[in-house]
Simulated assay, not measured.
Amino acid sequence: MKKPKLFDLANYTFIALFSILCILPMLLVLMVSFTDEASIKQFGYQLIPDKLSFDAYKLLLFGNTPLYRSYMISIFITIVGTTAAVLMTGMAGYTLSAKHAKYRNHLAIFFFITMVFNTGLVPWYLINLQLGLKNTIFALIIPSLIFNPFNLFLVRNYMSQIPVSLTEAAKIDGATDFYIAFRIFFPLCMPVLATITLFYGIGYWNNWFNAIMLVDNQQLYPLQYLLFKLNSEINMIQQMQSSGVLSGTGTMPQESVKMATAILTIGPVVLFYPFLQRYFIKGLLIGSVKG
């Protein structure tokens, strides 16, 4: 039975209004990043700027900041770290879901304990020092590489739903666990693998804590940490100017820089998500046909 047109119209109206409410904050951030700093102080945040200014982007993109190098570092660690983490989590999830794997329940309990208890910051730091990760590119990858237990159980539970008959049939044909995992389980688990890829990718892209703790070399600063330091320096200059300690340096675009920083940092994630969403839908179709 066809739904009433009035009901469809109400649905479309609600979705349109909800979409506008979701877009407005992002649009506001974008417009404030192009607003003159004096105008922001006088009129506050505006969707239609009283006076346009590109000072924030000039400072970030053309100032004396290694922004492009930090961008490349963040892209590199996000791609390498996410790929390795998803691969590790997928293989561990297959092991814990395999009925023939010995002690898989004991291993599951071991991983579950790590979700409840944390060793703390000092042992984490000392272990990284012992591994020789200080001031290396691996300091931005390996400490976050060990799979998240939540993601592990997410993958394990999804793989547990795959019929055992597929594994048994493959083993009769002489397939190894490696072949079964990569040629049967992983294609069927594309939806959950795409989900944890998004989790790991955003985690690596937004990670600045590892840089604070393990990196002193400015050549290895990721984007998030570089922009964090830049905003801290701008805030310090503003405080010195307001207190009279520093003068004659002009007005620093503090608020617009914050918004421009947000635009620059979320840009790659916003561009990446539609492709991942398509991949997610493709994985659903594959699972529905072959499952």
Results as ranks from 00 to 15, higher is better:
A211G: 01
K171L: 14
T89A: 05
I20E: 14
V257M: 11
K229N: 13
D50Y: 09
V116C: 04
I196Q: 02
P49A: 11
G90R: 07
F178A: 06
I263H: 14
A262D: 10
A260M: 07
F182P: 00
L60V: 14
G44S: 01
I202G: 04
Y204F: 07
L246C: 05
A181N: 08
G174W: 10
M213S: 07
A38P: 03
S53G: 10
A169T: 10
S243R: 09
I202W: 00
S247Y: 06
R278K: 14
F62V: 06
G283E: 06
F14P: 09
N135Q: 07
Q277A: 06
F186P: 01
T95K: 12
F153G: 11
M190N: 11
G283Q: 03
N207F: 00
I20V: 14
A194C: 11
L9Q: 08
K258D: 08
F182N: 10
S74D: 01
D8F: 09
I172T: 12
I212T: 02
I142C: 00
A16M: 13
T83N: 03
Y71T: 10
W124T: 09
A101F: 15
V86A: 10
P123T: 06
W124K: 12
T249W: 05
Y179Q: 12
I237W: 02
T261S: 02
D216C: 04
M91G: 01
S33C: 01
T176Q: 12
M252N: 02
L24V: 12
Y221D: 04
T83H: 00
F14G: 01
P66Q: 13
L193S: 05
P49G: 15
G267I: 05
N135F: 03
F272I: 15
A84K: 01
G287L: 08
N210V: 00
N118G: 10
Y71R: 01
F209E: 01
K99M: 08
W205R: 00
T176A: 09
Q161I: 04
